[in-house]
Structure formats: structure tokens, C-alpha cells
Simulated scan of single mutants.
Amino acid sequence: MGWLCGGLRWAGGRPALAWYEYGQGGSGNGGPRRAGRVSEPAYGSDIAFRVTGAERRCVGARRDGCPLRAVVPGRSSGGQCPECARLDRSRSVAADTVADDPRPYAVYLAWFGPGMVKVGITADERGSARLLEQGAVAFSWLGRGPLMAARRTEELLRAALGVPDRIPYKEKRAVRTSLPGRAERAREIEELHRRAGALEGWPESLERAPFEAVDHAGVFGLEGLRPMTGVVTELAPGGVVAGRLLAAAGPDLHLGTADGGVVVLDTRLMSGWELAGAASGAAGVGVPVRSVERGVQGGLF
């Protein structure tokens, strides 16, 4: 029996690492997920862990563990085997495979940096959780209504205004330390909100929302954040990650290292690894890291 990391979650507006417990199955390779817990790292606190498992295991689907505990590649951001990934995707609103969800949905505009605004939808009951998970620095609601009405509104903005529904994480990371002020962040969303509201073809069943900018820079700890010097590309057996938590945005942790650098750890790479706290004297990052300054693989710090 052991604890597998499930990556970063946002609970109550704060970052939290999820952990899954697996029991021993008949094959000795581990059975379904049995329980879970979370840990909430605070900004300014030290984080240090060691990879204790020999292999990275699939974290399962639909809140159930992978019955085979399949091995997954270290650089996979999903942390799932193909079968579990397909099972999750088969009931995914984001993948547009669900059309009969009776819950109300909200349409939003999310801002990640200058010229980086996307449109998306989320279950209204989730509030801003989806925006925190994506690392949206600022956002505003556009409207609320049935799922298909929200979908049509999303497509309307994509077709009429050229607003994308996805922005790569690497592009979001690249601009986090050089963001304009709060007023300028809000101004770009407000202009798109105005243009969207003037479009013809909004579904009648979608209740429009007035413009109101919500800013997450403070929640993420981005004010005064130093530029990153490296990005973790994967974890590895026996590897150590240690640093001071400077910021967290979406799935990313920005860690200040002992040598004065700032390394970004995408916590999706942690999913499925058995991890344990490292010794208090641990320092630096002992897993593969790509150097941002040189733009090439930086080896092990």
C-alpha cells in the first residue's frame, strides 16, 4: 500500500496537492483507489520530496484507480494509461462528448497575458475553480444557461471574434513575470466582452452577465515573481525536488532553488509517482530540467 500523488488541485481558492491510496490487489500490483487526502503548501514555505517509486503508475479515471496500475511515461502530462484516459474523455464536457448534462453552465473570457484571451465554459456550480486550474490571471463571466446554449455561445465567439478556446501552458508560463498592471489586464477583457455582447446570434436561453473583472495575480502569488530559469521535464526514480514555493498558477509550482534560480514544476508530472518527504537538508532539483536561459536541456541541477 502506498500514496500516489494526484497533482495540484485548487480548493477554496488555495493550491492543494492530492494524494491517492492504493491497496494490494490479487496480482500484488495494487488495486483500485481506496481513499484520498490533500496537503496545502503555503507561499514562502519549503517544499522537498523524493521519488520513492520505481515506476510511474496510472492514477485511474472517474475517481477510481486503474485496476491494472498501468505504467505511464514520465513525460506524460496526463498521468493516465490510454484506457483510463479514454474513459475520462467519454464523459468530458471539455472534449464535447456530453450533450445531456442538465446542470447550468457559465461562459467566460479568461486572460493569461497580453493578447492571450480564451473563451470557455464551466459548470456554474464550480464557480471560478476551472479558471484557477487553467492559470487564468484575470477573467470575466459572459453568461449562464443550458449546456448547449453555452456551447453555441463559445463557438460564436470563436467564429466571429477569433477567440481561441485553448492556450498552451508553455505560453502562459512565459509571460507570468512580465504582466501589465491590473487595470490593463481588465481593459483587454472588457473590450472583448463589449464586442462579444454586440454580436448577433446569442442563444435566447443564455442569461448574459455584465462585465466584472476578477483578478487572480494575488491568489497565484505573481506580484514581484522572479523570471523562471528552468522547467522540470519529468520526474525519475530517486530524484529530489526541493525549493521555496514562490507562486502557484494552474498546475504549476514556481520554486526558488538554493542556487538562486526559479524552477517551474508542472504538478501533472507528479501524478502517479510514489513520493515521500525529503530530508530537511535537501537542496536543489535532482530531476531532468530544461534551462530556459539556454533553451536546451539543462541536465540535472
Rank of each mutant, 00 (worst) to 15 (best):
A54L: 15
P73N: 00
S291C: 15
G250P: 06
G295M: 01
G261N: 10
N29L: 14
P251D: 10
R91H: 12
S205W: 00
R75Q: 00
D101R: 02
A149T: 01
L206D: 07
R63G: 06
R226E: 12
C66Y: 03
Q297S: 12
G44W: 04
F49H: 08
V232K: 02
E155D: 13
R144F: 06
W10V: 05
V241M: 09
E133G: 06
A106M: 05
L179H: 09
R89K: 15
L156H: 08
V117H: 03
H216K: 07
M270H: 03
W10D: 06
G28H: 14
V51P: 01
V289N: 00
E190F: 07
Q24C: 14
Q24L: 14
T153K: 03
S92M: 13
E200L: 14
G145K: 08
R182Q: 12
P67V: 11
D266K: 04
F49R: 00
P67G: 11
F211T: 03
A123Y: 09
V38R: 15
L269I: 07
V163K: 07
E274N: 00
P180S: 07
R103L: 15
C81P: 07
R9S: 13
A248Q: 07
L192S: 05
V231N: 05
E21S: 11
D46Q: 11
P73Q: 10
P227I: 14
D101S: 10
A258T: 07
L300M: 14
G2C: 00
S92K: 08
L131I: 01
G260S: 13
R103D: 11
M270N: 00
K172W: 01
V240A: 04
L235D: 02
L225Q: 03
V137A: 15
V93M: 08
D259G: 02
G120R: 03
R62D: 09
L68C: 01
A249L: 11
L17W: 07
D88T: 07
L253W: 15
G79F: 10
P15Y: 04
D100T: 15
V117E: 04
D88M: 08
A183R: 14
L225E: 05
A85W: 09
G26M: 13
V93Y: 06
E204G: 04
R151D: 08
R226V: 06
A61N: 07
G277M: 10
T233A: 13
L199F: 09
P114F: 07
W273R: 04
I167T: 01
W273H: 00
G135F: 04
R63A: 15
A249Y: 01
